[in-house]
């Protein structure tokens, strides 16, 4: 892309977005259609269009606000924003990028603790078995998030419908999967 050739190195989120995922925050002209269609905009501290605006300012204070926001963790990646954006700005990818950066820089919003606990439990589960072990995931998540009583009522009904396994399935390629985790997490650091 020609525009990347003229990029000057800056330590701003907008710069990293352009360099890493080829998304130009400055293309957004704040029409707000993303916020209007976002199913969780009402729960967010900054609506999607506000996140884009914060990024456009390229100031350290606003970049910090973005990384510490709850919004980036609430985003469901339902892609409705991208689907209707007049400028076709890939906001879901922006959110992915911001989450990963927020996690790496240890700036995760305290309210997002449970959301991340779930994601971590999820990945943990597959890390050791290769496939998701739903009961294991749930138990690990409860341990991490201290939500012991949540969804307890579901369990017996799931069991009676044969929807909950008690023993994890372990794939043969388990060491391979473990290696994938190791390699990708090493790159993270």
């Amino acid at each position: 892309m020609s525009h990347t050739a003229t990029l000057t190195e800056k330590d701003t989120l907008a710069f990293h977005l352009e360099k890493n995922i080829d998304v130009l925050a400055r293309k957004c002209y704040q029409c707000g259609k993303c916020s209007a269609g976002c199913p969780v905009a009402g729960e967010m501290d900054f609506s999607p269009s506000m996140v884009m605006r914060l990024l456009q300012t390229e100031t350290p204070a606003n970049d910090e606000k973005t990384l510490r926001s709850y919004s980036i963790w609430l985003c469901l990646t339902c892609e409705m924003c991208l689907c209707r954006c007049p400028m076709e700005i890939d906001i879901p990818s922006v959110m992915d990028f911001l989450r990963q950066k927020s996690l790496k820089e240890k700036k995760v919003n305290p309210k997002a603790r449970r959301i991340i606990a779930f994601h971590k439990s999820f990945l943990n589960s597959i890390k050791y078995t290769g496939r998701l072990f739903e009961l294991g995931l749930t138990l690990d998540y409860k341990r991490r998030s201290l939500t012991l009583m949540q969804d307890v009522a579901l369990a017996p009904r799931m069991i009676s419908r044969g929807k909950l396994h008690f023993i994890p399935e372990i794939i043969k390629g388990r060491p391979q999967v473990a290696k994938i985790f190791k390699k990708t997490s090493k790159k993270e650091n």
């Binding site: 992915d96 990963q100 990945l123 290769g130 390629g173 999967v177």
Partner: peptide, 25 residues
Amino acid sequence: SDWNCCGATAAHNLNKDLSLALPAR
């Protein structure tokens, strides 16, 4: 044969490489 989990939302939320590597396998 011997398929693994695709990583789902958790992987692409937390780790891009992982979110590509699991489906790639």
